[in-house]
């Protein structure tokens, strides 16, 4: 929990600091950047909490899909 909180604080600091350093700050640019940073921050915080996506299911799905298409290894 502490790790996840630290990740969030760090990401917010990095994001705010970087935006403040920009020469041109348009709303659109800041919005895109914020959305991307928020997404990465949430995923990293989840990782710090030990929550990982069911990648086995995803990879199994992709693998069998490719095999069905005759491209699988």
């Amino acid at each position: 929990m502490l790790g996840a909180a630290a990740v969030v604080v760090l990401y917010v600091l990095v994001a705010v600091g970087e935006v403040m350093l920009w020469e041109e700050r348009t709303l659109r640019r800041v919005l895109i950047y914020s959305i991307m940073m928020a997404a990465v921050c949430i995923l990293t915080a989840l990782l710090a909490l030990g929550i990982e996506p069911p990648k086995g299911i995803v990879r199994g799905f992709v693998g069998s899909l490719l095999q069905k298409l005759g491209m699988g290894g």
């Binding site: 970087e18 950047y33 990879r59």
Partner: peptide
């Protein structure tokens, strides 16, 4: 660049757990 680079921390962990899994993934995907 910054959000994309930082996504690498999560991405590398979620991609594959170790060397063996990397090999399996190379063949499958």
């Amino acid at each position: 660049l910054t959000p994309l680079a930082l996504s690498g921390i999560v991405g590398t962990f979620w991609l594959a757990e170790g060397t063996l899994e990397m090999e399996a993934m190379a063949l499958q995907v």
